[in-house]
Design a protein around this nucleic acid. Structure first.
Length: 867
DNA sequence: ACCTGTGGCGAAACAC
DNA sequence: GTGTTTCGCCAC
């Protein structure tokens, strides 16, 4: 049982196996709990071993049927896998044990039978992804399980057995797919790895995942509207007190339909007022309408919603139960827990709200194009189309207005998966292939779970025992470096302090995917860091006591290195080179998805929630990063280059000389084994003198604004707008002389904003600060302004919770703020706003050598205000 | 049940 | 009054 890996890299005590075996413990009372999703797993929440196990099983009369028995992450809750079929399970004593498979759960399995057909379609449509829900394909699973267990006979991950990405369904059976790389392209890519044996072998297995075509899965987007007597309050799905008055569906083939519930006192509409190309159906009976909705939900392999987990599907389910549907007639079920998911009986439900909410998706796949995750905001950012803006609440709309409104939402949701050549669906499927997760899981779970699953898969493939978190910490230790910021675990990157002022002709160099490159070239991986070979101890990590194995390359080092290389050497260049739009789009999607994984791969190593959490690996990564940028700056200076600024992996060089830059790049490649690339060239950069804080105008006229207050989400719109005008004046500047001329314009602009503010000629909307609540207002340690505003809103019977966006203005008197809904323009505290204006503008003015007070003559005026 | 990391800035609240 | 802490948002 002790794997090769464990013996080699951990100090394995003599009798390791016996340790578990000999610790006999026979509990008097056994608690049996259901294991989620696996159906035929029994979870015993007790310690067990040899004789104890037997006694225990005898107690429950199931000993003969127990096939396998494994530990879970905690090491104390072993799983039993049984080979019992459902009928046996139902009859067995175990089943009737309180807390185990209750009646309802068994019943659910019967429902599952019907789901297989549709799920099979999805799996079959993309054999390289594992698809569908595990429970739903349970009859197909045993074959995969056998293979899995035989092949990886050491550990079963988190209540699931991964059937493997290399299976597809044929005639109702799982069939192994031949994954030998075929085709010229694979060969061509593999040639790039001639000198890296381990990486080449792994790339052989992974390339099909990226090169195989991505299926266009048939799907439908849905949306509902619910009647509400209070237009400010969203109806509660658990109570489902009010009728569903509209339902819309838009499918991937272009079919559009709307169901409307006839109600009293609703304005009737002419046929031509309804949306065109759309089937409209009226119902007198909500029950009937729900029946029709359920039929539709079962027609598509994938159903898309925006917030369907929390609202739409949840509401439909509870409304149906309230109207007298029995549970087995409703094809929707909610998972248990605080953050439940709505699952469909015969389809996969993708809640795009959850997917778009994922920080990695937001940042790296969509480069922060949207900030608020609302249907309206995301649609505007990605599709340039908005929701239909309503003056009245949905409950007051005419039938035609309601139909248009509801349909638009479903259209937007469908469009999310279609725009940019099905980008979102393609990303989802690629993430399924990379993480070996189902569509439902991959769209709901965060990046750390994707990476965990990806790594676990590679462990099992190699027959490695997967250690627990506490085992890694015990053997490899905690972080030793001290963070600059209090409360952080270890030291991070270096940021240079830039000189305040404007600099013409600045080149920016950066290290391409610095951290993944470090992980690869310096062999960073939890099992090989601080290994127990005496001869490795001299291979130290700078400014840490850690060392790294020189005998064997670690798993994460190979895997992350391989992903980095195929992105950098193939998919990134190809996504720029290839002309054929379809091919190009595929390269772009693969490139994007790899970027997402790579960017998070370092972070998770330093995250205590991550199951392979290894602080020494995380701090070694940043330590080497610091070493690399420091050495590069030194080298640049010795070459006579002037380094203005740098942050983590970038270096700003003033008046660069091509030959010296080339020499620096060559040196970095040779000495440090990292690619130093020429990133961009600024016509000029204006530094405020603060770190992470500057404006630059590129040679093509594009403007980069970094970290300045004027661009932050919480800054009031009037300042953002003024700031943008300010920057656009700046972007027209070409020469130092033009600066002098632009100063008058800048002065006028600042003056105008100031006067307007003073005369209160801005609306409340323009003055509003927009801040997100990161937790419920009651949970805050300090009552900051947005929390105060939120509490005022709550007192005004508004629903406010973690994630809510609070808009407030600053007013005179206590408590100094009011939510925008409750404020009047004459209450505004003008002085506070002048201060905000000052900081916003000063960040750039100092760079230009201008003074805010001087420009406005503010000093005399503020003193006037103070009287 | 959910959760990648550290560094840095500004505003306001809190602690003394 | 002051220094410190908390919070949100951003850069990388």
């Amino acid at each position: 049982m002790v794997s090769r890996l464990l013996e080699e890299y951990f100090e394995v005590e003599e009798g390791f196996e016996a340790e578990y075996e000999e610790e006999l413990y026979i509990p008097e009372k056994v608690e049996l709990k259901p294991a989620r999703n696996t159906g035929v797993c029994i979870l015993l929440s007790v310690s067990y071993s040899g004789e104890a196990k037997k006694a225990l099983l005898k107690l429950y009369d199931v000993e003969k049927r127990i096939m396998h028995f494994w530990y879970d992450d905690s090491g104390h809750k072993p799983y039993c896998l049984t080979d019992m079929n459902i009928e046996d399970l139902k009859r067995s004593k175990v089943v009737s044990h309180p807390g185990f498979l209750g009646f309802e759960r068994v019943k659910k399995f019967d429902v599952l039978k019907e789901r297989e057909v549709e799920l099979t379609k999805i799996i079959a449509s993309d054999p390289l992804a594992i698809g569908g829900r595990r429970g739903a394909i349970r009859d197909l699973l045993p074959k995969a399980w056998e293979a899995d267990i035989k092949y990886h006979n050491c550990y079963i991950f988190d209540r699931q057995l991964v059937p493997g990405m290399f299976y597809k369904v044929e005639n109702g059976k799982l069939v192994k797919v031949d994954v030998e790389p075929s085709g010229e392209e694979s060969e061509e890519v593999l040639k790039l790895f001639e000198d890296q044996v381990a990486i080449k072998e792994l790339a052989k297995e992974w390339l099909p995942l990226f090169l195989a075509p991505i299926p266009d899965i048939r799907r439908a987007a849905i949306d509902i509207e619910v009647y509400s007597p209070d237009p400010d309050k969203l109806p509660n799905p658990k109570e489902a007190l009010y009728p569903i008055i509209a339902f819309s569906l838009v499918d991937s083939d272009g079919r559009k339909l709307v169901f409307l519930l006839r109600r009293e006192n609703v304005e009737s509409s002419q046929p031509d007022e309804f949306p065109q190309d759309c089937e409209v159906r009226f119902f007198y009976d909500e029950y009937k309408m729900l029946e029709e909705i359920f039929k539709l939900l079962c027609e598509y392999p994938v159903i898309l919603t925006f917030n369907g987990d929390n609202f739409d599907l949840n509401y439909i389910l509870h409304r149906a139960l309230k109207l007298g549907f029995s549970r087995d007639k409703v094809p929707i079920s909610m998972t248990a827990g605080e953050n439940p998911a709505a699952l469909l009986a015969s389809s996969v439900h993708v809640d795009l709200y959850k997917f778009f909410h994922n920080k990695s998706i937001q940042g790296y796949a969509f480069s922060n194009k949207y900030r608020d995750v609302t249907l309206d905001a995301v649609a505007e950012a990605l599709l340039s189309v908005r929701k239909i803006q309503l003056k009245d609440s949905v409950s007051q709309l005419s039938y035609a207005q309601l139909a248009s409104y509801c349909l638009r939402d479903a259209e937007l949701v469908m469009q999310f998966t279609k725009f940019n050549d099905n980008l979102v669906m393609k990303l989802v499927i690629l993430f399924m292939r990379i993480a070996k997760m189902s569509m439902e899981d991959v769209t709901r779970q965060g990046i750390s779970n994707w990476i965990r699953n990806m790594l676990y898969f590679e462990h099992r493939k190699r027959n490695y025992l997967i250690p627990r978190k506490d085992e890694i910490i015990a053997v490899k230790g905690q972080a030793v470096t001290e963070a600059r910021i209090k409360g952080k675990k270890y030291m991070g990157a270096i940021v240079l302090k830039p000189p305040a002022g404007v600099y013409f002709n600045v080149a920016v160099l950066d290290f391409t995917s610095l951290y993944p490159s470090i992980v690869k070239t310096r062999n960073l991986s939890y099992e090989v860091i601080n290994c127990n070979h005496p001869e490795c101890k001299s291979n130290t990590i700078p400014s840490t006591p850690h060392w790294v194995c020189v005998k064997k390359q670690g798993l994460t080092s190979i895997l992350i290195g391989m992903l980095r290389d195929i992105r950098a050497l193939w998919f990134k260049p190809m996504s720029r080179k290839v002309q054929d739009p379809a091919k190009r789009s595929l390269y772009e999607v693969v490139e994007k998805s790899l970027k997402v994984i790579l960017n998070a791969s370092y972070g998770v190593m330093g995250s205590s929630n991550f199951s392979l959490y290894c602080p020494p690996v995380a701090e070694s990564t940043t330590a080497i990063g610091r070493y690399i940028i420091t050495k590069t700056i030194e080298k640049a200076q010795s070459l006579g280059l002037k380094v203005l600024y740098g942050d983590t992996d970038s270096i700003f060089i003033y008046e660069p000389e091509e030959l010296r830059i080339k020499e620096l790049m060559r040196w970095a490649e040779e000495e440090l084994k990292v690619d130093l690339d020429y990133d961009k060239h600024y016509k000029f950069v204006a530094f405020s003198g603060l770190k992470k804080n500057y404006v630059g105008v590129l040679v093509n006229g594009e403007v980069d604004i970094k970290g300045l207050v004027g661009k932050k989400r919480n800054t009031p719109p009037f300042l953002k707008e003024a700031f943008l005008n300010f920057v656009s004046l700046l972007s027209k500047v070409d020469t130092p002389e033009a600066f002098e001329r632009s100063k008058t314009l800048i002065r006028n602009l600042a003056r105008r904003v100031y006067d307007r503010l003073k005369e209160r000629r801005y609306s409340l909307d323009e003055l509003a600060f927009t801040v997100m609540l990161s937790k419920h207002p009651s949970e805050y340690a300090v009552s900051s302004q947005h929390v105060k505003a939120a509490k005022l809103l709550m007192a005004y019977k508004k629903n406010v919770d973690s994630g809510s966006i609070i808009r407030f203005v600053k007013v005179k008197g206590e408590p100094g703020v009011k939510p925008i809904q409750l404020a009047r323009i004459d209450e505004i505290d003008v002085d506070k706003y002048v201060e905000h204006m000052r900081t916003t503008f000063e960040q750039v003015l100092t760079a230009l050598g201008l003074d805010f007070d001087e420009i406005l003559g503010v000093k005399s005026i503020t003193s006037f205000f103070n009287k």
